[in-house]
Amino acid sequence: MENIQDKVIIITGASSGIGMESARLLVANGAKVMLFARREEKLQQLTKELGEENCGYVTGDVRLPSQVEKLVQETIRRFKKVDVLFANAGIMPASSISELKLEEWNEMININIKGVLNSIASVLPKFIAQKKRACRCNKLDRR
């Protein structure tokens, strides 16, 4: 992992799974992370593990634009900038499609799609103001 020393990275869905493990890896490689998820206890534990000098958290829900905006504002207040958005929050209902659980489908759309859009809408004006170029940071994607 290169060039992430002191980069400020927002991670949604940071209370478990890929979000949690990414936070650990990023901090271990010198990044500062701001965690975001609905489960405050998990965020508190991870922040304590990673060290408050490297990590902060905001409890909230990506479905609610005002809460994602609060996340971005708190990140800038705490770390003075945002370099990367890792819009990781997501769910995958485990029911069979034949069960026609429309409510589960709508929740998945609200979190997995609208949550990403809410996150982008909150952080993009900050990126533009910081005059940062958008880039694809996945080294596995060599197109």
Rank of each mutant, 00 (worst) to 15 (best):
S96N: 15
D141V: 14
K7M: 05
L35M: 08
A23G: 01
C135V: 09
S16W: 15
F36T: 10
C137A: 15
R78F: 02
E49D: 10
L35R: 04
S96Q: 12
V84P: 00
M20T: 03
I10P: 00
E74I: 06
G60V: 00
K139P: 03
Q5Y: 10
S122Q: 01
S22K: 02
P125T: 02
F86K: 00
T75L: 13
K114S: 15
F36D: 00
S98N: 10
I111R: 00
R63P: 05
V8A: 03
N29G: 03
N110V: 03
M34H: 07
Q73E: 12
A129S: 15
C55A: 15
L46Q: 01
G115Q: 05
G115M: 09
L50C: 11
K81H: 05
V116I: 09
V82K: 01
Q44L: 11
L46E: 08
E69D: 12
I111F: 12
P125G: 09
K80M: 12
K132G: 01
N3H: 13
V116T: 14
V72S: 04
V8D: 02
R38L: 13
F127N: 03
S98A: 14
S122T: 00
E2V: 10
E99F: 09
L71Q: 04
A94E: 03
G13N: 02
N106I: 04
A31S: 11
R136N: 14
L35D: 00
I76V: 09
T75C: 03
V123E: 01
D61K: 06
K70Q: 06
R63C: 15
N29K: 08
L100V: 08
I111M: 09
A28F: 07
K48P: 05
A14D: 09
T59K: 03
A94C: 11
T47E: 14
D83R: 14
A14S: 07
E107D: 13
R78A: 09
